[in-house]
Amino acid sequence: MPTKITIPFDKDQLAKLSAGDEVLITGYIYTARDVAHKRLCELIDTNKELPLDLSDSIIYFAGPSPAAPGRVIGAAGPTTSYRMDAFSPKLIEKAGITGMIGKGSRSEEVIAAMKKNGAVYFAAIGGAGALIAEKVKSAEIVCYEDLGPEAIRRLEVEDFPAVVAIDSTGRNLYETGPAEFVKF
């Protein structure tokens, strides 16, 4: 059975999560993709204020499809995370994010920053956009509206299904999972 966890996470709760655990996440998360990451990091580099408070927050690498009338959001699955690898260490260290949700493995630099700051990386199921849309209870644009699907949105999620892919000790399911099944 998946473990239910709620945001904001406390560090003890995060430390207990282990790579391979299936979880259901409830609370508020922020979407951001490539360009939003670049803009946030440029603000950090120039010591300017961020347009949102990211301390103890979770960033979801996602650009949902538009909401049809009567719906909160369109399909809302994850995008591939490696494109954010150059920016994530800065957001962990300087902006205080404690979690990321995406798909695919992360760089050594990201994992090192996660270990140092007790952050966790969750894998959401890529290509399950309709299923995830059902778990989103509200959505609003916070900033960078000009980016369209890539704007930063605040999503209220309930029982959002994910897997702990890289835990706060650096254990990486993208390595240990396939190693269990490889035949060559």
Partner: peptide, 9 residues
């Protein structure tokens, strides 16, 4: 290869 669904094995 062991990659598996979503690359998680």
């Amino acid at each position: 290869s062991g990659v598996g669904p979503q690359g998680l094995g």
